[in-house]
Design a protein around this nucleic acid. Sequence first.
DNA 1: GTATAATATAGACAAGTGCGAATATACTCA
DNA 2: TGAGTATATTCGCACTTGTCTATATTATAC
Lengths: 112, 112
Amino acid sequence: MNDHAEQSLFFKALSDPNRIMIVDMLSCGELCACTILEAFSLSQPTLSHHMKILCRSGLVIPRRDGKWTHYSLNREKFSELISFINYISTGAGKECIHFDTKCCDANVLSQK
Amino acid sequence: MNDHAEQSLFFKALSDPNRIMIVDMLSCGELCACTILEAFSLSQPTLSHHMKILCRSGLVIPRRDGKWTHYSLNREKFSELISFINYISTGAGKECIHFDTKCCDANVLSQK
DNA sequence: GTATAATATAGACAAGTGCGAATATACTCA
DNA sequence: TGAGTATATTCGCACTTGTCTATATTATAC
């Protein structure tokens, strides 16, 4: 996969302030859905929806326990995410092909 | 600001595969819009739209130079982003208040 | 089994997003 | 000034997203 579709799921998952807060809560340890729900003024189905998106991205892992569902962070995925951000935001280890500069850069140079 | 609205802009900006690719390209250095455009099969207005979202988040900085616009990464913001992800995904330095566990955790414990 | 509790799914709706075509703006050069 | 070039904005469209209400599923307890 080269179009970063998988990684974009990480970012999509964290692109909502409520979901950021949920991750923040989970960083202290595993929590069950009802505990998370209490901290927000969201309906239960809406929270369930948010949890599904977080789980789909792989950043959060669900654990069924009787009639309860407990959620926890997938630390590995967060490491992956940070590595990925480092990769795309620094030239480190890249070929850094000189993109064709015919349109403008060449002109800029020729002006000097 | 406590609702992470600002940080969610970082994630929104990177939640599109095309924008991830653009950041990847910019990691090798400043590029002008026309050079980026050549690398994608997008219309010029659509690219302009993506660049606006990237700039709005603060991750990318535009620089006008005559009729050209050059874009570069804002390394500081990427550091901020990584720090933020570390913050929300680890308990480090947090109070880690024990959330009210009345609904389920208490039951789980009482079952043991 | 039936009632209750925790969570998930379905459906609807407003708001937001990605996209291109058309147009506008801003700059350069003759 | 006027033509040409680089980029931005506007607008319309299909699709996605965040939210709710209503309902279904799954597990527990009597």
